[in-house]
Design a protein around this nucleic acid. Structure first.
Lengths: 241, 241
DNA sequence: AGGTGTGAAGGATTTCACAGCC
DNA sequence: GGCTGTGAAATCCTTCACACCT
């Protein structure tokens, strides 16, 4: 299982290293740091400390420093981080220093909202192709990309290969999601953002990231519910359920 | 720090207890277990083992058992879990064994998609009021709830108090999100699901759960990018950035 | 055999605390 | 004085492994 025959040199500057085993939580926060930094820059700030950056996001200063340190040295002691440089470097790390074409499957309400979403472009994501099964949807124009229209599923593989698209979004009903994922994977997609409320099983080498809108509300109701948890458990125990 | 003067009885059924310090990850998975169980039930299954439930979600069997055990005893040794009972009990725990009225702020593309989303109702969430600043949007009907229409922001507090709404959704542009959150909080909302791409700071006792669509894609691009991470870091170091 | 519930072990992540630099 | 980068400690979470049940 240990497939890394790395040089046995006991010492030396193989550089910070360990890249590739950055904690998942750190990577997720990296996106939030980037977003916050972009806001600060827009606000005219040029420099920020780990404390201020963390405070804006509800994270400790030590956490911020540790997270950034996984990726190299970014700060200046006694000063903080230079916002514009840090942004550039985080974008490189997240690989959003380029344009990613994205394929969207499903042109229903959610799909339409995603097509119109203004937040993707400034982050480097462009919905470059849209597919649907519904003949009524096919042929409708894609607002973000003049000239292109919603295509039938039959054209999915060809289009994705031709445009060399690597990321897909699934916005179809639950019962069509696995098939959509399989078709995307088969067409060479490497990562999928899934909005359908089902657990998808990856067929082949693809990375699936799911966002379930109802689950997000459920998590809120769990925490916000006025009855204490102990009662909710007790109630279930009794209640002859 | 040990503030639990629990009976010192060495033995005996004080019942699991410790409720209230359930690990966050366990609660998040609980939602996924519930969803999967609902699917299994719909498929005609009546019983499931921790192994099968976990496998469907990419989680170990031990993890499933441990997670469920935080909330009590649910299974039958040698058999597994009775699906229908487990569903009922998890719903109680997540507090979705009731209807939660939800206030939506923002009737743009995303807001409209959320109003039309079919996934909320079966989970117990009902969008009961919608607000927007745009006069063109105000007065438009809410599809999910006949008779009700999009209201102006000025009516937000009154309506939320009158309908006793405790959960809100923010689907407005980034620069309007904090104000929306403040108004919701002021009106007595306890939990907010925020889709605007900004870090909101809670004013008062409110719980904010944010979902940033672009961030989700960013996480994919990080992991899917063909250039190895080490190069992305090195490139940034060099490049005179 | 098959399967849960759970203490104990192991890993992973976060926080502490401080050396070192501006 | 302010602030980063980082080992070490503390905490949190997951996995192991097994008693116990059916």
């Amino acid at each position: 299982m240990d497939s890394s025959p790395v040089s046995e040199h006991p010492d030396e500057q193989v550089v910070p290293i360990g890249f590739d085993d950055v904690p998942g939580p750190a990577v997720r926060r990296l996106s939030l740091y980037l977003r916050q930094l972009e806001n600060c820059l827009a606000g005219g700030q040029t420099t920020i400390s780990s404390r201020d950056l963390g405070a804006a996001l509800g994270v400790t200063d030590a956490q911020v420093r540790k997270d950034l340190a996984y990726f190299g040295q970014f700060g200046h002691r006694g000063v903080g981080y230079k916002i514009d440089r840090l942004i550039t470097r985080i974008r490189k790390i997240l690989a959003t220093d380029r344009i990613w074409d994205v394929a969207l499957v499903g042109a229903g309400h959610l799909g339409t909202a995603l097509m119109a979403y203004r937040g993707f472009a400034p982050k480097g994501f462009r919905i470059a192709a849209v597919f649907d099964v519904d003949p009524a949807k096919i042929g409708q124009p894609i607002p973000s990309l003049s000239g292109r229209v919603v295509q039938p599923m039959a054209e999915l593989a060809d289009t994705i290969r031709r445009l060399d698209i690597k990321i897909g979004i699934i916005a179809v009903p639950a019962d069509a999601a696995q098939a959509a994922a399989d078709q995307l994977t088969e067409a060479g997609i490497l990562g999928i953002l899934n909005f359908a409320p089902v657990a998808l099983v990856p067929k082949g080498k693809v990375l699936i990231n799911s966002v379930d809108l109802a689950v997000q509300l459920e998590q809120l109701s769990y925490r916000v519910c006025p009855e204490p948890l102990s009662e909710r458990i007790a109630a279930a125990d009794v209640a002859g359920v």
